[in-house]
Computed example of a mutant assay.
Amino acid sequence: MARRFLPILASQLLIFFFMSSFSTTPVTGEDGGFARRLDRKLLGLKKEKLSHFRFYWHDIVSGSNPSAVLVVPPASNTSTAFGLVTMIDDPLTLGPKLSSKLVGKAQGFYASASQQELGLLMVMNFAFLEGKYNGSSITILGRNAVFSAVREMPVIGGSGLFRFARGYVQASTHSADFKTGDAVVEYNVYVFHY
């Protein structure tokens, strides 16, 4: 019996000593030599602006070339697909038809994270391929209650022209085919960036 508790006790002591080491560190106001304040102009950051983007996200799970692939199947005893994880490389187009102009890709994954309703954890980059935004991305991380008319998720950052980005997206389902599982969702992105 003591053999079972020894590893647990040892890990708890390690955590205790690790946490207590923070409380004994004196606060001097010095940065320790690894951090410094910067003037945003040194990074080429000018005046912050607010932009609005509107495009359509095509989640294609059917056919021979799907843009969304099931990685982890849901638990067998759930009505909400709880536990499902799907990787995506979904087209972003100007219009709701897949043949519309491609402006980027939504790359990341979504996972069913609710046992009571179809609620997805969305983790994705909107990687743009068009115009001056080509090569830049906006990062989304949030909850998507799929059957709500409008879902709001935060913008948590970005790259390229969207460094230091913050804002939110609103998603609304344009169309869904319950036989194939394919869906088209309109995204409105409101983002502060430099």
Rank of each mutant, 00 (worst) to 15 (best):
N65E: 06
N65F: 13
N65R: 08
P66D: 02
S67D: 03
S67F: 11
A68V: 07
A68F: 11
V69K: 15
V69E: 09
P74E: 04
P74C: 07
S76N: 12
S76T: 13
N77K: 09
T78G: 09
S79L: 12
A81C: 08
G83D: 11
L84P: 00
L84K: 01
V85Q: 07
M87K: 07
M87L: 14
I88W: 02
D89S: 15
D90C: 09
T93S: 03
T93Q: 02
L94K: 14
L94T: 10
L94D: 10
L94Q: 14
L98P: 10
L98F: 14
L98Y: 12
S100M: 08
L102H: 13
L102D: 02
L102M: 10
A106E: 02
Q107T: 14
G108C: 11
G108L: 13
F109G: 05
Y110D: 14
A111C: 06
A111I: 08
A111G: 15
S112T: 15
A113G: 12
Q115E: 15
Q115L: 13
Q115N: 13
Q116G: 06
Q116N: 15
E117R: 14
G119Y: 03
G119S: 11
G119R: 04
L120E: 04
M122T: 06
M122C: 07
V123E: 05
M124D: 01
F126W: 02
F128M: 13
L129E: 14
E130N: 05
G131S: 10
K132G: 04
Y133G: 00
Y133F: 06
N134E: 03
N134Q: 11
G135P: 02
G135T: 04
G135R: 01
S136N: 05
S136Y: 03
S137A: 15
S137Q: 05
T139K: 05
I140P: 01
I140K: 06
I140M: 10
L141T: 01
L141N: 00
G142W: 11
G142Q: 08
G142E: 02
N144V: 04
N144F: 12
V146S: 14
F147N: 12
F147R: 13
S148H: 15
A149H: 08
A149V: 09
A149I: 05
M153H: 07
P154N: 00
P154S: 01
G157F: 10
G157P: 12
S159F: 07
S159A: 15
G160W: 08
L161W: 00
R163H: 13
R163Q: 15
F164G: 03
R166T: 11
G167A: 09
G167S: 07
V169L: 15
V169F: 12
V169C: 13
V169A: 13
Q170F: 06
A171P: 01
A171W: 11
A171C: 11
S172T: 15
T173K: 01
T173Y: 00
S175P: 04
A176C: 05
A176P: 01
A176N: 06
F178G: 00
T180N: 08
T180Q: 05
G181W: 03
G181Y: 05
D182E: 09
A183C: 10
A183P: 05
A183N: 13
V184W: 12
V184N: 02
V185W: 12
